[in-house]
Nucleic acid binder design. Structure first.
Lengths: 353, 353
DNA sequence: ATGAAAGCGCTAACAC
DNA sequence: GTGTTAGCGCTTTCAT
């Protein structure tokens, strides 16, 4: 009880001043550089000194000033930019990174990318201003050329950006495969008229593609492989758009027997459209999503979908990033295989007459 | 490790060095402090100088070094700690803060609080190390005494922490009122046997309460106001727990006619239990949740619930925090009224027929 | 193995 | 209104 126990706030000094490395050095009777070495687990400290310094650190409740560290060495923070905080996959990825970082000296700083490419870019810049030691960009909306520029300054790992580059690391769910799994599933069930509701590709998507484009490409390829002609409606990944697209599809003279909504959120809209029209799912119409969001698992919804495992993706992204920070020079691409999750909204095609 | 990196933004510097305030000053033919003033929109700069400096900044693509700024002045970053990234309310709050910050020089840094009080605390500490100018703590799991300590160092706004304090600002959804709205709704529908499934309170919750405790208190009070005896089951806010609690309640000799699940996620479990048992909702059993998560709005679910508006809450929290940073000394409590959202899972009590 | 000293990029006094 | 100067707390040579 005689010594200053570890204070919760770093203000063990008599005056309210923040505890600095100098205070610790004085207390331990060593030099500031010695303390610095201990803090960073650097080479060249005797065990004796190490323990004395550690004790002083505890006594004083010393915590290194991140800004000051960032000026000379590392900031020990890594930035994560997600585009859609409403996406469970993206949240999962971010969460896994946060969890994985717990056993490291790093801390994540998550930010949501905003609604435009400009905004997205400015978020990244702000992170770079904060001297993040690395960056994970989930489903980046900006031109990969820009990503490459950024990657020249700081290690970058992209998630859900499809393509090939030597400028940064990438982790992708194999969404072409995911789409193929869906198509195969549908064809096995006897479906021949399958409609995909998708999203328009972005301008820069040559060489690189975002999720929806990869899914569309995978869909078209898989459908053709079965000798069918792909039917794709340009829509959007939203509940309303899925609803509208489905109504339009059902209004055709020859409506599809299966709708692959491209994303669960759109599939929910499709489901609503079918329910309202009195079209029974899956007897009259099969609906499949992608993403395996939480709502898809609700028994009353029971949506057949594709699971991309944000956990595996997040783990991989973090590992790649830390490797880069440690000095790896070569770029790496990490591909995760998705899984089909068959639930209640998919069934045999209605007997063709 | 030290490969020659390319520059991030168009810079006139020949080597890859970062553009500093000195470079800008030289380019504009002024002093560094002048540049600093322009950047911070500080007082005492002539329009002529301002525009020259701005031009130099643009030419060079200068961006202030956040760490260096943090050493002398502000870090221009504010920390947001959420406990549950799966909670749409919390995500909403964080998102609104991010959006609100867009028109300010500040940037948010969101972090998820982890699964224990210790972890939660260490996340906060890491944020404080980064010299955040302010902190928003959403549903903080740590003892309010600790929050007060932190608030002595940096402005703090808590969200969803019920109580009174002069040490920090609070934004709360009036969850007692929310619970009362639910009870009144149920009683009006003729229900007399109403069961609340809730969560155990934390140790420190005397004087302060977290959401579930406030909801429980509100429930008990409202039920008594109608001359009934409160029936509360200790459970948890999860799908499985809601499921199990509902099965247990239905197994009673005198099962309830209405279950107030305390949270939507638990209500979904309750719904599953009822569906599995062949108990029709709402004819045989009414189920009500709280939070208005996305899944509650799906037509096939159509859950009656209470909406707390994460948007309004987030806006308020940010406003309060910025006021504090600007110098307000007095603490403020901001209470948001929730709204009952009546959907398809609530109906007239069966017993009264 | 340890410490002295020189900055990192910026802001805030205080000169002019 | 503008420039000069002195650090903020830390890491990193480079002595010893």
């Amino acid at each position: 009880m005689t010594t200053q126990r570890q204070r919760l706030t770093p203000t063990a000094e008599p005056n309210g001043r923040r505890v600095t490395i100098l205070d610790v050095a004085t207390r331990a009777g060593v030099s500031p550089s010695a303390v610095s070495k201990v803090v960073r687990n650097a080479y060249g400290v005797s065990p004796a000194m190490r323990s004395r310094v550690r004790a002083a650190i505890d006594d004083l409740g010393y915590r290194p000033h991140a800004g000051a560290r960032a000026m000379r060495g590392r900031s020990y923070s890594i930035g994560v930019v997600v585009t859609d905080v409403g996406s469970p996959f993206q949240i999962d990825v971010a969460h896994r990174i946060a969890v994985g970082l717990e056993s490291t000296p790093y801390q994540e700083s998550i930010t949501s990318g905003g609604t435009s490419a400009t905004q997205y870019r400015s978020r990244i810049d702000a992170l770079v201003d904060r001297q993040v030691d690395g960056l994970v960009l989930v489903a980046p909306w900006i031109d990969p050329a820009e990503v490459a520029e950024i990657a020249a300054t700081v290690p970058v790992v992209t998630v859900a950006l499809h393509g090939t580059t030597t400028d940064f690391d990438m982790v992708v769910d194999d969404e072409e495969l995911g789409a193929r799994l869906v198509v195969n599933h549908l064809v096995e069930l006897g479906h021949r008229r399958i409609t995909l509701t998708s999203m328009p590709s972005l301008d820069w998507e040559e060489g690189f593609r975002l999720s929806h484009t990869a899914r569309r490409d995978g869909f078209e390829r898989a459908v053709r492989a079965h000798g069918l002609e792909p039917d794709v409606m340009d829509s959007w990944y939203s509940e309303d758009a899925g609803y509208a697209a489905t109504l339009a599809a059902l209004d055709r003279p020859q409506p599809p027997t299966a709708i692959f909504a491209g994303a669960d959120i759109a599939a929910l809209g499709a489901l609503r459209a079918a329910d309202e029209r009195g079209v029974h799912v899956p007897d009259d119409l099969t609906i499949v999503g992608y993403d395996n969001i939480f709502a898809a698992s609700i028994p009353r919804v029971s949506l057949t979908t594709v699971d991309a495992s944000g956990a595996v993706t997040g783990d991989a992204a973090l590992r790649l990033l830390l490797e880069r920070i440690e000095g790896r020079e070569q770029s790496v691409q990490y591909v995760v295989a998705p899984q089909l999750v068959v639930r209640g909204t998919s069934g045999p095609a209605p007997a063709s007459r």
